[in-house]
Design a protein around this nucleic acid. Structure first.
Lengths: 256, 256
DNA sequence: CGCGATTTTGAGAGCCGTCAAGATACGTGG
DNA sequence: CCACGTATCTTGACGGCTCTCAAAATCGCG
């Protein structure tokens, strides 16, 4: 167990957005707050943090005094084996909670790193229990988010455990595309896509080389275009069928 | 989406244990309740359910009117691909919550099946929100349990994504042994172990045949004995080193 | 323009999957 | 108590998916 995992050179605080004007709220897929909830979150929020791409947000085995909500950008959650093998569990995107583990247990057993430049809302971990005593509806939202994480992890585990390489790539590309689109992150038909092939390989439980060759195969089917950090899905139905995607309907999600 | 997934022939209700005398409470690893918490849980609990080995508890894509806590026995949580490939996500053991997803979303996207005979405490899903408004400390416990699930899923994903066959078998055997021992389920040095090799294969993302051959290799190292549904770990340190186990310290856990 | 990060390609090895069949254990009915 | 069917476990052979090693091409950046 290492000590506190915060304070990295690449972090700066910045102008603080009032929660009432939270940019996430305009995105349609998030639920509305009552004024009481809004006031609580405003009180709970300690500021904002801007993190550079590649910077660690929390490190494996450490604890953090803070809990975050992603306002902008992409991050990823991962674990490593002693010899360096890395597995990426999931990606953190706008609206996602970061650091729940540290609010519930002592330490985080996974690391989180910024994949692109990110902006985070900062909440103090030691006030987290107040959320349960003072705003039950928000506490329920935390459970919602947590159960949603579990759902994504289940899907990811099925992917890594039972899909072959081509299915895995197709599934994860679709998954990320789908989440990003729902969050309104598209630029026309294209998506700014910050993953390298190494990230994808570590997500899929494949080697870098085989991932590269499999992407080539997927490109050859003509259902995606992915060049220079931009992703375009040109045949979504085909992509879904290759990835054996089983879509469950979504409802408006909460966030804090 | 199929309809309600309850009511199987193999279920019977039975004598109802008062929560104050809950057998889990004596097991040391669970936290104590205040009398208020106890009274709430007593009110929340609708009865008990006994389920035969092999019986489905909830099915993929259905919703359930109930939420359960495992009192006795083993179950497993799984997902399947359209062509029948199955991935087991995790095992449900005493103290674990079953069906949280259905209390938060509409449907469960995974199935749960009894691995041995099980006894479950039954709670009504529609009263679940009351837990948040009336007993914040129990709501926090739900978050604890949920975050704990996520922690186990992370570990499982690392296993399936980045460990080789021998490491996978060693890891999962240790994981289950460890949980069972903490729950006081040992009979001397031996553990009643209800998994078949097919279950293990579906947990590890391996084929049945290769799982069998890998178990043989693990047995040859002399650190486990596993015959006729009984498991014995004869060299735990060795098992952990083979499985590259990274143990995180545990604290008293909550349950409902 | 030069260097590091990333992507791409080829070759060969090996881990793991599939197919097939036999052995063992277990429950059921005669 | 024995016969028999089913579930589970075991073993062998073979193919292929994926890994490792190696090196070249391309991109991004100072």
């Amino acid at each position: 167990m290492r000590a506190e995992g915060s304070a990295s050179a690449s972090r700066k605080s910045r102008y603080r957005t009032p929660c009432a004007a939270c940019p996430l709220r305009s995105r349609g897929m998030f639920r509305d707050f009552t004024s009481e909830e809004l006031a609580f979150v405003e009180w709970f929020k300690r500021g904002e943090l801007s993190v550079e791409a590649g910077a660690p947000i929390v490190q494996e085995g450490t604890s953090s005094a803070h809990l975050y909500t992603v306002l902008e950008g992409w991050g990823f959650r991962y674990k490593t084996l002693p010899d360096g093998r890395r597995q990426i569990m999931n990606f953190a995107m706008p609206g996602d909670l970061i650091g729940l583990q540290t609010s519930v247990f002592e330490t985080m057993d996974h690391g989180i790193e910024a994949l692109s430049q990110m902006v985070l809302c900062v909440f103090p971990r030691d006030q987290f229990p107040a959320l349960y005593t003072r705003q039950p509806s928000l506490a329920f939202d935390v459970t919602w988010l947590s159960a949603n994480q579990e759902r994504m992890l289940d899907a990811q585990l099925l992917t890594v455990g039972r899909r072959n390489a081509l299915e895995r790539v197709a599934y994860v590309v679709w998954h990320l595309f789908h989440r990003a689109r729902d969050l309104g992150m598209m630029h026309g038909n294209r998506l700014a896509f910050p993953l390298t092939q190494q990230h994808l390989a570590d997500t899929l439980g494949l080697s870098l080389v085989h991932t590269n060759k499999t992407i080539k195969r997927l490109r050859a089917t003509g259902c995606i275009r992915w060049t220079e950090r931009w992703l375009e899905v040109t045949d979504e139905a085909h992509l879904k069928s290759i990835g054996k995607v089983d879509e469950t309907p979504q409802r408006p999600r909460p966030f804090i």
